[in-house]
């Protein structure tokens, strides 16, 4: 099993004012899946994604990544796990401002100690994969929301991660751009990269192979489905 949450709870505050963001969640995700985490805001889906991405730690329960328990990891061990296996795409893009697209994409490689020239070549390639060839030297401010999010995806995939975790990747872009982003994610999934995506848009969840619904910190449904084939979308366009 790639990722496994065992009775994971996440609590905020103490005593009377204690709030449970997650209540004893059980969730297993296998390699190659494209999982959409859905639910209203405050349902715990983002907290779940943060724990899956080792950005946050469970208050109780155990989270295993590739069958390794992570609850006793320190900050650096979690950072090493992220750097080795994970790529992140955020709702707000989270690109470094005043830093060119290609430099943003190079950043994770820099922290992995990749040589500067190799770094540049791989970053250019990743940008080409998300359809941004020719815009490598634009700064985020010079790019549209959709383009910025594709830079962020290029940054997530440049390290060849096992999993890409996306938190509302289409939240800040219009429908047409959202579809482009989903197509990029689907292509990554077809290459064998596991995708876990938080979204509240049913349209976007159609691209996933599995939809997990959250409510009040618990999972209320977990449904496998046939993902929307992007070939169809391309066919329709043609």
């Amino acid at each position: 099993m790639l990722m496994s949450m065992q009775r994971v709870s996440k609590l905020y505050g103490e005593g009377e004012s204690e709030i449970a963001a997650l209540r004893e969640i059980e969730l297993q995700i296998d390699t190659g899946e494209f999982v959409a985490l859905m639910g209203p805001s405050g349902s715990g889906k983002s907290t779940c994604l943060n724990i899956l991405g080792c950005l946050d730690v469970p208050t109780r329960g155990e989270y295993l990544f590739q069958d390794v328990p992570t609850s006793r990891f320190d900050n650096d061990q979690r950072a090493r796990l992220r750097r080795r296996f994970l790529g992140f795409v955020f709702q707000g893009f989270n690109l470094l401002p005043r830093t060119s697209a290609v430099e943003n994409v190079e950043l994770p490689l820099m922290y992995r100690g990749v040589h500067a020239r190799v770094r540049r070549a791989r970053a250019m390639e990743a940008l080409a994969q998300v359809g941004l060839a020719g815009r490598e030297h634009h700064s985020p401010a010079q790019l549209s929301g959709g383009q910025q999010q594709r830079v962020a995806i290029a940054r997530a995939l440049v390290t060849d991660p096992a999993v890409v975790l996306a938190d509302e990747p289409t939240g800040n872009v219009d429908t047409a751009r959202a579809r482009e982003i989903m197509e990029v994610l689907t292509r990554l999934n077809q290459r064998g990269i596991t995708i876990v995506m938080v979204t509240h848009e049913a349209d976007m969840a159609l691209y996933a192979s599995r939809v997990v619904r959250f409510l009040d910190g618990g999972i209320v449904s977990d449904v496998r489905q046939t993902p929307l084939a992007i070939a169809t979308a391309e066919g329709a366009a043609a």
């Binding site: 950072a79 750097r83 922290y111």
Partner: peptide
């Protein structure tokens, strides 16, 4: 925020 981004994409402390 920038530090958060760096930590998320692979920077160690």
């Amino acid at each position: 925020r920038e530090i958060g981004i760096r930590l998320a994409i692979g920077a160690l402390g």
